[in-house]
């Protein structure tokens, strides 16, 4: 499928998500406090998004991943945060 056809299909959705993301960053900006590990990770991912080259989904998923190899001592909370807490 060529670039124009893919753009026809996905541009409106990508544009909408882009503006949602921009508005989210503005909202954060207006709020008091500091960036935590999630926002720091997200800002690093934005740099990756703008960098030249492909394979962006994989690179951003890795950037948001725990890079360590050893099992942790205890599970703690059952849920995941979406970014590595020690980023």
């Amino acid at each position: 499928m060529d670039r124009t056809r893919l753009t026809d299909i996905y541009f409106p959705e990508a544009r909408s998500r882009l503006i949602d993301l921009a508005a989210f960053l503005d909202r954060i900006d207006r709020a008091e406090g500091q960036d935590d590990f999630r926002l720091k990770s997200l800002r690093a991912a934005l740099a990756e998004l703008a960098a030249p080259g492909s394979d962006k989904a994989r690179k951003i998923l890795l950037l948001l991943s725990d890079p360590t190899a050893e099992p942790v001592a205890e599970a703690g909370a059952k849920s995941a945060a979406g970014a590595w807490s020690r980023f």
Binding site: L61, L62, S65, D66, P67, A80
Partner: peptide, 9 residues
């Protein structure tokens, strides 16, 4: 496989 940041490891 685990969720989100825990999946790769």
């Amino acid at each position: 496989t685990p969720h989100l940041e825990d999946k790769w490891k």
